[in-house]
Amino acid sequence: MLRRRWVDAVVVVVVVLAFVLAPQAYSNETLLFQMMVYIALSQGVNILYGFTGYLPFGYVGFFGIGAYGASLLMLHLNWPPILALLGGGAIAVLLGLVLSPLLRLSGAYFAIASLAASQAVYLIVSNPALQNVTYGPYGIQLVSQFNPTLSYYVMVVILALTVAVVLYIRRSRFGTALQAMRDDPVSAAMAGVPVVRQRTFAWMISAGIAGLVGGAFAWQTSVFYPDAVFSLSISIFAIVFTLFGGAGTLLGPLFGSVVLYGMYNTIGISDPQYFQLIYGLLIILLVLFLPDGAASLLKRRGSHVL
């Protein structure tokens, strides 16, 4: 037990150190920042998909509402940024609660309903009718709060928290219960697991992570239009990274995000003309030949993957 805690602590420290030190070696902080964003988001997807089997295609909805929530708290109520981020996270959790009836759906229905929900949130936020509140299509402009360095380190903290949460879930009875529900909901319910409540809880944790990350992203970006934070590609990236690494593990999505997002940028910088083509082909090949994620390679050889 003690050794496990040790391992967990080491993992968190290594992740933090990697991103605290990385800017010394590589000065494209935006890239590093977005890599953290995707690691955290894919861990959020992981909590839901890896532990409950629900694939949230509309995950970006929480990210976007977190970005907007935090920005609007800064702009309208003059909240200090860090407090506003927490507020954005809380708003995302609230949205998760409102949308929790979606969890009654299964499989593709859930995936698509969550996608529809995220698009609905986007269209409401960006509608000119709400211009006085959300600035509608004119987007967000956080000039006076702009602080790229501080927002970078806040993102490191959020990432560390996310990793810690995933580790906790993996180790806890809560996580075991979730996975039991994923594999066989009926038996789990019969064994006395409060299925609906547990699942809703996982959904809200996942939403909260996306909300916090969205807030940090908004703070770091500081000038953006609504489509930038509600772009479907954000969901898709997080999902692809999770699946590539291997859902249900901690290191899988971490590895998936670092490798695939790194590759995405390497292709973008070295072969801009064939960017989309190469990336699409890569996704197809990965899914065809490694459908259970990179972690499955290790598992197949009998090792335990954290």
Binding site: Q276, Y279, G280, I283, I284, L288, D292
Partner: peptide, 25 residues
């Protein structure tokens, strides 16, 4: 290939997203 995996319904979403990218490109 996909139908033989653990969770074809979900994995296929990603596969066809990749296909969509390739076709668009």
């Amino acid at each position: 290939r996909i139908a033989a995996t653990k969770d074809p319904e979900m994995i296929s979403l990603v596969l066809f997203f990749g296909l969509s990218q390739v076709i668009e490109a």
